[in-house]
Nucleic acid binder design. Sequence first.
DNA 1: GATGAAATGTTGCAAACCGCACAGAAGAAT
DNA 2: ATTCTTCTGTGCGGTTTGCAACATTTCATC
Lengths: 263, 263
Amino acid sequence: MANDLGTVPRLRKDERRRQILLELRLRPHVRISDLSERFRVSTETIRRDVEGLSADGLIDRAHGGASARAAVRYPTFDERAGAQVSERARIGRRAAALVQPGETLMVDSGSTTLQFARHLAFAETPCTVITNGFAVAMALGQAEGIEVVVCPGDYLGSEAAAIGTETVAFLARHRVDRCMIGASGLTADGPSEAIRGFAAVKRAMLEGARAAHLLVDRGKFGHEGLSRVAPLSRLTSVVCDRLPDSDLRHAIVMADVDIAVAD
Amino acid sequence: MANDLGTVPRLRKDERRRQILLELRLRPHVRISDLSERFRVSTETIRRDVEGLSADGLIDRAHGGASARAAVRYPTFDERAGAQVSERARIGRRAAALVQPGETLMVDSGSTTLQFARHLAFAETPCTVITNGFAVAMALGQAEGIEVVVCPGDYLGSEAAAIGTETVAFLARHRVDRCMIGASGLTADGPSEAIRGFAAVKRAMLEGARAAHLLVDRGKFGHEGLSRVAPLSRLTSVVCDRLPDSDLRHAIVMADVDIAVAD
DNA sequence: GATGAAATGTTGCAAACCGCACAGAAGAAT
DNA sequence: ATTCTTCTGTGCGGTTTGCAACATTTCATC
């Protein structure tokens, strides 16, 4: 109803919203009261603007204002089902414990590997990490003793990650002790990935690492994404929050892959 | 009074504050009520944490929560005057107008080039941008029609940028229509940079671009950073918010460099 | 275990914010 | 000019947050 092709929208509202968006690209947070003062409109109007932008997914709402959209939606939007989050956090912590001081790593982008990065950053295990994920780099970048190397590539805004041939070629030029990757699904055929362009990156990490750890929560078991990443046998271990069904478990064990259950 | 070298601070508080900082690396805003729930402490305690972190200049306070300090620190807290900010914004807008559809660009990390990026993102001029700055990539990554390529390199957390030999080598492999770079200072000897490791990146961009634009606000005139980036003559134009003094202006003109004054 | 400092929780009240409903204002289309 | 739609402002009750003072707990140290 708002986007009739022929109509020229009014200036006022769109201009304001546009300014709000611009502002939020510069600073992470704006206050409704400030905006109201600046545009000389009522707080209610700004509230409606912010509400609208938020509904369009362009910004995140906050009490008293609005904030830029999170680079990575980390605890997804299911706040209450935070179970998922804490399970991923447990997986991340378990995986972080695998890292020995001085090691070199490759880390995938994704919410589960981000949890890993957060725990590794907290542990401050001295190591070197190569990653294509912005959130992972930012999480690790503040930790003392952790060197972070970022991959080149085409920037994928929706996932805040670099992908593509540049990324793959860069990874192929490196060799590390371990890699930590996520996946959209895990079956007896191996991990698979739903997001276009990610499978190749994960594959490149698997190739370049002596040990490969797959970080997946129980929700991934039995699901299959669009692209096959690699056969199960390519993995060293699967880090998860619960043992898979006996079929999948059997396939994993037969492929000589360890299973580590967090907590 | 907080940093006695010998004393070992308690765990609880620091752990919490650290997690808050970590969280703010990933999302721009956290709510006090959420944090209180997550850490199972009273909102007052979180409020004190946030207050403390804010006093240390590590985060920005907001009603109901806290927000990350912009990846690249933006100047002052004076909202309305915001002179520096709006001047940089004007420079950014002016520079964004230089970009023609279909061009290829290299863009430096930094607060002024970030302003450029956000205006380019808003204009949605179709183009391809190579950048080493995370904030620049994230700003441009939301825009339709703009392809963003990120550089590899060592991640510098304090500036959210990639630097080092990998970055330089990557840039050297590319050739673009224009580059947009910032600087810590500008004198008759040319632009200079205060942050270690940045000068080499800027130099590589200058080498790889047919046209080179330096984006600087008036505060940079006459200042000189640690590393010389390049001679004035290497630039195509200087985009600034006010004409430099006659001496500097003369040097710029003699070097056959254009001066574009925003607004 | 006693002691004291720091951290945390609790309470009460003021201020800021939210959301709704309705009315007025500004444009667009007829 | 008129109608109609969309946008904006105002008022008000309800909720959340902020802030300060005080009570309580925790922890290190003796």
